[in-house]
């Protein structure tokens, strides 16, 4: 009995030693040197691998930061400035501050505003619906409502409203731009969050002329240009029958919104106006 135990003990110990030696040599042979700072940076990053920074994932961003030896042009949307400051502190680089952003949905073609004219009955993919037709409401640029953006979101920061049939961005959006890329019609845009989360933007991307645009949707931008004239800061431009508010120049004065004849300009998180206006868009969006 003892013999058996002894033999097995010796065999197993010998086996273990041989394996250890083998492993050591193999590890030596295939050793890859890596800057230890990369791991430090990875530890500071959120680890969501969302791709919002423009790199393939958190590790890729860390590698790029360490390789370039600076933080210029690099940002981590989910982590925000706090994360970048931490990284800067650890590596001893100068931190670059970026304005926090959020995704906004530039379409207000709800069931009410753009009534359903066609029934869509195919696979639930905006990309596919886009190849088939203009959309249930008839607008060739409007939201198709199949939720490609919602599927693309890793942070559960966007959901489909049952009342309007439009996606709604929640406050926990980290501006990783996954939804921006997912939308086949370029409806979603990243904009600065603004003071006190106040934002104002043209909630339409329709480039048709006024008449056909208005025919499909009550709140379409008809390219009349009134807002352009009303703006004192030259923040609004008109291109292809569509107005666009530059968030960098906009001072959030809300003058354009009162001018817009169709109510295409949408304001978020502003206090109610003193005198009631019909064109004020609902601010239910969180």
């Amino acid at each position: 009995m003892n013999d058996i135990m002894l033999y097995s003990l010796i065999t197993l110990v010998a086996l273990g030693c041989i394996a250890a030696i083998l492993l050591y040599f193999i590890a030596q042979k295939f050793k890859v040197y890596e800057d230890p700072r990369i791991d430090d940076v990875v530890d500071l990053l959120p680890g969501a691998n969302c791709g919002g920074c423009g790199f393939a994932g958190c590790r890729a961003l860390a590698e790029a930061i360490v390789k370039d030896e600076n933080l210029e042009g690099k940002s981590c949307p989910p982590g925000g400035n706090a994360t970048m400051e931490q990284i800067a502190a650890v590596l001893g680089f100068a931190a670059t501050i970026t304005e926090p952003q959020i995704a906004v949905v530039r379409c207000n073609g709800s069931f009410e505003n753009a009534p359903k004219k066609i029934d869509y009955d195919a696979v639930g993919s905006c990309y596919f619906a886009h190849t088939l037709f203009a959309g249930e409401g008839g607008c060739p640029n409007g939201c198709l409502g199949c939720g490609d953006c919602i599927k693309s979101c890793q942070f559960d920061a966007i959901f489909m409203s049952k009342e309007t049939g439009l996606p709604v961005v929640k406050d926990n959006c980290v501006a990783c731009s996954a939804c921006v890329k997912a939308c086949p019609r370029g409806i979603i845009e990243l904009r600065n969050r603004g003071k006190k989360e106040r934002r104002i933007f043209v909630s339409c991307v329709n480039t048709e002329k006024g008449a056909p645009a208005k025919k499909n949707c009550a709140v379409a931008c008809i390219g009349c240009g009134k807002c352009v004239k009303s703006c004192s800061f030259e923040a609004i431009t008109l291109n292809k029958n569509l107005a666009y508010i530059d968030y960098a120049k906009c001072k959030l004065c809300r003058k354009c919104a009162t001018e817009c004849p169709t109510g295409a300009i949408r304001e978020l998180n502003f206090p109610p106006r003193k005198e009631p206006k019909e064109t004020v868009a609902e601010t239910a969006e969180a």
Partner: peptide, 8 residues
């Protein structure tokens, strides 16, 4: 009735 759109 609304017309239906779907892929072939």
């Amino acid at each position: 009735n609304l017309l239906t759109i779907s892929g072939s």
